[in-house]
Measured scan of single mutants.
Amino acid sequence: ELELEEVDLYRMNSQDKLGLTVCYRTDDEDDIGIYISEIDPNSIAAKDGRIREGDRIIQINGIEVQNREEAVALLTSEENKNFSLLIARP
């Protein structure tokens, strides 16, 4: 049973970094989820404190993420200042 949490992050300008590194968990081929492998200690996500390494990203801004490229594109989008992440953890 996964616990879901919605985390809203806000950046003042497009130079601010959310600070999330995303990856696949390669140990299970059936698991195509996108996971947070690293959080930059000086980033918006780290200061917010709710997202943890190992969390799975389900949605970004209401869009279900299917692959790492999509997640990276959404997280690094210059147009977005508000990010709503739906994350899951066991």
Rank of each mutant, 00 (worst) to 15 (best):
E1R: 02
L2R: 14
L2C: 07
E3G: 05
E3R: 06
L4M: 15
L4N: 03
E5H: 12
E5A: 06
E5T: 15
E6H: 06
E6D: 06
E6T: 13
V7Y: 08
V7K: 00
V7R: 01
V7S: 00
D8K: 01
D8G: 14
L9S: 00
Y10H: 06
Y10T: 14
Y10K: 14
Y10I: 13
R11P: 03
R11K: 04
R11G: 15
M12C: 02
M12S: 13
M12I: 06
N13D: 07
N13M: 04
N13Y: 07
N13W: 05
S14A: 14
S14Y: 11
Q15F: 06
Q15V: 08
Q15I: 12
Q15Y: 09
D16P: 04
K17L: 11
L18Y: 03
G19K: 01
G19M: 01
G19V: 00
L20T: 02
L20N: 00
L20Q: 00
T21S: 09
T21A: 10
T21I: 07
V22G: 02
V22I: 12
V22Y: 08
V22M: 10
V22L: 12
V22S: 03
C23S: 10
C23K: 08
C23Y: 08
Y24F: 07
Y24L: 12
R25V: 14
R25Y: 15
R25P: 15
T26F: 09
T26A: 06
T26H: 11
T26E: 10
D27I: 12
E29L: 09
E29Q: 10
E29H: 13
E29T: 13
E29Y: 07
D30G: 11
D30L: 08
D30H: 13
D30C: 04
D30Q: 14
D31R: 13
D31N: 09
D31V: 08
I32P: 03
I32A: 03
I32T: 05
I32F: 02
G33A: 09
G33P: 08
G33V: 14
I34W: 10
I34H: 10
I34L: 09
Y35D: 03
Y35C: 14
Y35S: 12
Y35M: 07
I36N: 00
I36Y: 00
I36L: 04
I36S: 01
I36E: 00
S37G: 08
S37W: 03
S37T: 13
S37F: 05
E38T: 10
E38V: 08
E38Q: 07
E38H: 14
E38G: 04
E38K: 11
I39T: 02
I39C: 05
D40K: 13
D40R: 11
D40G: 06
D40T: 13
N42K: 11
S43D: 07
S43N: 04
I44H: 05
I44P: 07
I44G: 03
I44T: 07
A45T: 10
A45M: 02
A45L: 02
A45I: 03
A45S: 10
A46R: 05
K47D: 15
K47T: 09
D48P: 02
D48W: 01
D48M: 02
D48C: 14
G49S: 10
G49K: 14
R50M: 02
R50E: 03
R50C: 02
I51P: 07
I51E: 00
R52M: 10
E53G: 07
E53K: 06
E53A: 12
E53D: 06
E53T: 07
E53Q: 08
E53P: 09
G54K: 05
G54A: 06
G54V: 00
G54Y: 05
G54Q: 08
D55W: 02
D55I: 01
D55S: 11
D55Y: 03
D55N: 06
D55Q: 06
D55E: 02
R56C: 04
R56K: 15
R56I: 11
R56M: 14
R56P: 00
I57Y: 00
I57D: 00
I57E: 00
I57L: 08
I58L: 11
Q59M: 04
Q59V: 11
Q59S: 13
Q59G: 07
Q59N: 14
I60Y: 01
I60N: 01
N61G: 10
G62W: 02
G62K: 09
G62Q: 05
G62C: 15
I63A: 09
I63D: 09
E64H: 04
E64I: 03
E64S: 04
E64R: 04
V65E: 03
V65H: 04
V65Y: 05
Q66K: 14
Q66L: 14
N67C: 13
N67K: 11
N67T: 13
N67R: 07
N67D: 13
N67L: 08
R68E: 06
R68D: 13
R68K: 12
R68L: 13
R68A: 13
E69N: 04
E69F: 06
E69K: 08
E70C: 06
E70A: 08
E70R: 05
E70D: 07
E70Y: 03
E70L: 05
A71G: 05
V72D: 14
V72G: 08
V72P: 02
A73N: 11
A73V: 06
A73Y: 10
A73R: 09
L74S: 08
L74Q: 14
L75D: 01
L75I: 10
L75N: 01
L75F: 07
L75K: 00
L75E: 01
L75Y: 01
T76C: 09
T76F: 11
S77K: 10
S77V: 11
S77Y: 07
E78S: 13
E78V: 08
E78H: 13
E78C: 08
E78N: 09
E78Q: 11
E79F: 12
E79I: 10
N80Q: 11
N80P: 14
N80R: 06
N80A: 12
K81A: 14
K81P: 09
N82H: 11
F83H: 08
F83R: 02
F83N: 03
S84G: 10
L85S: 01
L85E: 01
L85K: 01
L85I: 07
L85P: 00
L85H: 00
L86Y: 04
L86D: 05
L86G: 15
L86T: 14
L86N: 09
L86P: 00
L86E: 08
I87Q: 01
I87N: 02
A88R: 13
A88P: 03
A88I: 02
R89T: 10
P90I: 04
P90E: 05
P90R: 03
P90H: 04
